[in-house]
Write a protein that binds this DNA or RNA. Structure first.
Lengths: 327, 327
DNA sequence: CTGAAAGCGCTTACAG
DNA sequence: CTGAAAGCGCTTACAG
């Protein structure tokens, strides 16, 4: 029914091996090459990738497992990874775990079954700790989340530094009672929490935090609760874009304005952060660099498998907007 | 190096065929099944999907080609499609074309090479018109964009109706000079444009439109230009979420407030539309239903290939917010 | 440069 | 219910 390499070969008057060489990069005379190319065009032949992968033992596939595809950070990351992959003639299979360790396990199995070349992975804390890349048949680069020190290749931003910058900025604007809402599934949120604590302690300020599932719904509910309790903070920070989104909704529902009723700042320079109220002060992550770097590390690991695990630390950029700038 | 079905078979003391039957759904005695399952666990065996697909002639793969993965509409669509696919034990390969016909052609080739079971596709106008599904080896369901009447299975919303509702609402709020900015790549934008023209004409109002590449940057530039010309509209509508985003930015840069300096409404109930200024009036698309329906149509088409092309029309929901409600 | 042959790792009639 | 055998559609040593 579908046209195979044999049909093309017959039509071009050559062997299937020659067709294969023309399609790949084997040595073929100009004349045979022309005949084969003509036959491919005439028949509309499309190689069967399953057969090719099976025979060549090379999937030319990068796995990308992210925790929340609704989060624009991961959308942007996936575009960066895909662009880099296609330039190396690889495809990528993208999976979304919803921060759910069971789904992570399922997708790790899938990656094994697809015999992927390498994996870029933003794991939950739980999975990052359990993950043993020696049991996997492919190299892994963690992104956004580092996992236990020295165990995995990873590319992250300097979260303590970024949190320090956030707190310093709020301090300069005169905020003193600064609370924080952090995700409860990622090592990134843990690092940001620690950075927050350190920066507060350095100024003699008291830490005040809540932990939530890192999505807008949970963050909104928690913020609303918090706002109703006495002695609430003068400013809040949120550990990622989705959390921040929920916090904005809660402030709005409570009728609190920024920056005077409440200062607000956090992570991820999503489109809407610029547009809401006086604009939100955020730390922007260099997501394109993160994606590109992850791909490079994967390729390096493939060519030099016995390198030490490496951690690449990039730097976030503080973008100050009206949500924290009192006149 | 990696464990194959033969290794498992040897360990369980059965034939590879029996292992295959245990993993699939062949008839196997309880005793052998237990032995095989134990051997699978002991060895950590993972089947090779390329081999399985090649041999079974069944990829169990749905293709999903969208035009802009940054657009939350398509993010949500892809989640809906994936959920439906995994419930049928299928995987999905997701591709992003950036509204670029060359990339669309490339991904259609890829889909052929992957021997996918079926395709869900949001094509550009150019490709929708050229597309001949009889040349493809798999069924196609178009989503969001219908293409030429009667040619393809598709699921869309009633765009003229939705545009009519938008114009009616603006009319009721006292807006008369209503302009529109529409994307220039999709049949959806064309339909929305026509709906806009009809609704304006029905009220004796004069249409005034601009066409742009359907992304925020182009829409912002075009809106900024428009705002500088004399006799500008009292209200604007935008044909999708990305366009609307650019329009909001332009209004903000020009220092124009909603709803008084300018009314603004459009398509796609993205998270930020609720948060910007007094909230944006939008038409929400039933994106989960669109995804689920597309999957169902694909499965129906697979079981009854010679059905007439069918068009399923769902309905958008008007969400009125402050950007168009004058006191 | 070219072709005949083997084989990647599975599944599935076929026979028992 | 079970196994031996064939074969999915390619690629790649091997020999010439």
């Amino acid at each position: 029914m579908t046209i195979g390499i044999k049909d093309v070969a017959r039509r071009a008057g050559v062997s299937p091996a020659t067709v294969s060489r023309v399609l790949g990069h084997g040595p073929v005379s100009a004349e045979l090459r022309d005949r084969v190319e003509a036959a491919v065009r005439a028949t509309g032949y499309r190689p069967n990738l399953s057969a090719r992968r099976l025979r060549s033992q090379h999937s030319r596939t990068i796995g990308l497992i992210v925790s929340d595809i609704r989060n624009p950070f991961f959308t942007a990351l996936s575009r960066a990874v895909e662009d880099a992959a296609y330039q190396s003639d690889m495809r990528v299979v993208l999976c979304n775990t919803d921060e759910n360790p069971e789904r992570e396990a399922m997708y790790l199995r899938l990656m094994q079954e697809e015999r992927i070349t390498g994996l870029i992975f933003a794991p939950t804390k739980a999975t990052a700790e359990r993950l043993d890349h020696t049991l996997l048949d492919f190299p892994v680069v963690l992104v956004d989340r580092a996992g236990p020190p020295g165990r995995h290749d990873c590319v992250v931003i300097d979260n303590p530094l970024a949190c320090g910058a956030l707190i310093e900025h709020l301090w300069e604007q005169g905020y003193r009672r600064i609370g924080g809402i952090f995700g409860n599934t990622s090592s990134t949120a843990v690092e940001r929490h620690e950075g927050y604590r350190a920066a507060m302690a350095a100024r003699g300020l008291e830490a005040d935090v809540r932990f939530v599932a890192p999505n807008a719904e949970a963050a909104e509910a928690e913020t609303a609760r918090w706002l109703r309790t006495p002695g609430r903070p003068e400013a809040l920070i949120g550990s990622n874009g989705q959390v921040l989104l929920g916090m904005v909704k809660a402030l709005r529902n409570a009728g609190l304005g920024m920056p005077d009723d409440m200062g607000l700042a956090g992570f991820d320079n999503e489109t809407w952060t610029e547009l809401v109220g006086p604009g939100l002060t955020v730390v922007e992550q260099p997501v394109l660099d993160i994606g590109r770097t992850a791909m490079m590390m994967l390729f390096e690991r493939l060519s030099v498998p016995d390198l030490q695990p490496r951690k690449v630390v990039l730097t976030g950029r503080l973008i100050v907007r009206g949500s924290t700038t009192r006149r």
